[in-house]
């Protein structure tokens, strides 16, 4: 090293290929970034373990409950504790929301991590039109996470169901089960995109995670406790409740199919579009 003469050829003629910045190239660039961080793989690993693990515990817990009920009331025959087999399947799937939160964090970090470390300067210098950066991150997250989310959602259901007695269990081939699995996988990808949008809006990891925890986790469970009607109604329009309203459900679905689908699409796209507008307008 330390040659005083740079071994570059005259300006603009070195073998640097020839290429304009295009969306496909930016997606490749974003893939290089995502894949080169250990935190990405750690988060994905924990996501899989947590998603399948918590559902397994839930299934095992339900099986214990069924056993206890049957011991008390011998000729039970049917599902325990007033829960139908569909409701059991739905409640097993709903436990994936903890893991879903991790994908939101992954999405948020994809942007907020760049601001925190200063990488955004290099990124926007390479892609000065800016919007392709965020669009590429969204496309990439959706492409990478969709299959992973489907597998986790499916495995979560199967693992949970495996503990239940035949009379209380459902399989993927049963009515509404596959739809619910897909809906929960969709909620996972939606949450990742929501995190991405929040990261672009807030530029802060802590801020994004706070909003994620409220939307993904607290709103569905906590807000109804306030007893304010319109708040309770509003709190149903979150990804978890939307996913829980599709396919097999724990009771009457909170949202219609159209409402649920729009809710999922809305949470994925609205913050992302707002983030896109701010990315174009703000100083980097």
């Amino acid at each position: 090293m330390s040659t005083t003469r740079p071994s570059t050829s005259p300006a603009g003629t070195a073998g640097t290929g020839s290429g304009r910045v295009g969306l496909a190239r930016v997606v490749r660039s974003e893939w290089t970034k995502l894949a080169s961080l250990r935190s990405t793989w750690m988060l994905l690993l924990v996501f899989v373990l947590l998603g399948v693990g918590v559902a397994t515990l839930a299934g095992w817990g339900s099986a214990q409950a069924i056993e206890a009920t049957e011991a008390g009331t011998p000729p039970a025959g049917g599902p325990p504790g007033g829960l139908g087999r569909e409701a059991l399947a739905a409640s097993i799937l709903s436990t994936t929301s903890l893991a879903t939160l991790l994908l939101g964090v992954l999405g948020a970090l994809a942007v907020s991590g760049e601001y925190a470390t200063g990488t955004m300067t290099a990124t926007l210098t390479a892609v000065p039109r800016r919007w392709p950066v965020l669009v590429a991150k969204a496309v990439l997250l959706a492409l990478v996470l969709a299959p992973v989310a489907l597998v986790v959602s499916g495995l979560a259901l199967l693992a949970g169901e495996s503990f239940l007695p035949e009379s209380a269990s459902l399989g993927l081939q049963d009515d509404g089960v596959l739809a619910a699995v897909v809906a929960h996988a969709a909620a996972m990808v939606v949450t990742a995109l929501l995190g991405l949008g929040l990261g672009a809006l807030l530029r802060s990891t802590a801020g994004s995670i706070t909003v994620l925890v409220v939307v993904v986790f607290l709103a569905p469970g906590l807000v109804p406790l306030f007893g304010v009607d319109w708040l309770t109604t509003a709190s149903q329009y979150v990804p978890a409740t939307a996913a829980g309203s599709l396919g097999v459900t724990t009771g009457e679905p909170a949202l219609t199919t159209t409402e649920a689908v729009l809710t999922l699409v809305g949470w994925a796209l609205v913050p992302l579009l707002a983030g896109l507008v701010l990315l174009q307008r703000r100083d980097a």
Partner: peptide, 8 residues
């Protein structure tokens, strides 16, 4: 990652 944006 930067090189990829322009096919370098």
């Amino acid at each position: 990652s930067l090189a990829r944006t322009e096919g370098v």
